[in-house]
Amino acid sequence: MTHRYRLHEDILAECLCCHSQQPFHFDSASDQVVCTFCTRHIGAEKAERRDADHVRLWAELYAEADEAHRVFAAESARRSAENDAALVELQAKVDQLTGIVNGQFDQTATGGVRALLETELLKRAERRTDLESRRTARAMQVLARIAARHGADQQNPLRCRCGNPVVDCRDLAALEPLRQEIADWEARARRP
């Protein structure tokens, strides 16, 4: 009788004698699908021995599965207890934080939470101010460079320094309302 299992590799397959999953390595499609434990059962005269061996095998397989289940159940119970303890601890923290949010800043285990929060808010505001100042400085540097290229030419007041007529230079028109701000910023930037 032929089988359809893959050849030349280790696989798990159901033994046709004991019907348990067993390791096999088939070299031919005509190899018997009978595990090494059951090879001694082949033949009609060995039926009684086969049945006794199968009962013993099934009892061992059941005992192994029962032990694996017992270990799994014990591990699951241990993990469940750990999770329950962690949940109790987290609930206590949630209760404490709820109290803080409700305005009981100074009545917590850590003490002056209000002062810590105010200090943190102040640091964040200072950082935002510093970032905005840097951003403004970069923008003013760019505007100052553009303003240096666009303005009425001293020798020819009808032309922009870029070479275009003053009335046609869009950059000059855009910079004109900001010239005093750019000049004030450059003066402040030069001071030590």
Rank of each mutant, 00 (worst) to 15 (best):
E82F: 06
R78C: 03
Q91D: 15
E89P: 03
Q107S: 12
L116R: 12
D66V: 01
E75I: 00
E67Q: 10
D66F: 11
R79D: 13
L87V: 12
R114C: 07
A74W: 01
S80C: 04
S76W: 05
R79V: 04
R78Q: 09
A115L: 10
L116C: 03
D95H: 07
S80P: 00
G103K: 02
S80E: 15
A115H: 02
L87R: 14
E89W: 01
L90Q: 06
R70M: 04
G111H: 03
F72G: 13
T110P: 00
A77L: 04
R70K: 09
K93W: 08
V94K: 06
F72A: 15
V113H: 04
T108P: 01
R79K: 14
D66E: 11
E67P: 02
E82A: 08
R114W: 00
R114H: 04
L87G: 08
A92H: 06
G111P: 05
E120N: 13
K93P: 01
G103V: 01
V101L: 13
R78K: 08
D84I: 00
A68I: 08
E120V: 00
N102K: 09
N102A: 13
D95V: 02
Q104Y: 14
A115T: 10
Q107N: 12
T98P: 00
A86M: 12
H69E: 15
A109Y: 12
H69T: 07
S80L: 09
D106H: 06
A73K: 08
G112F: 00
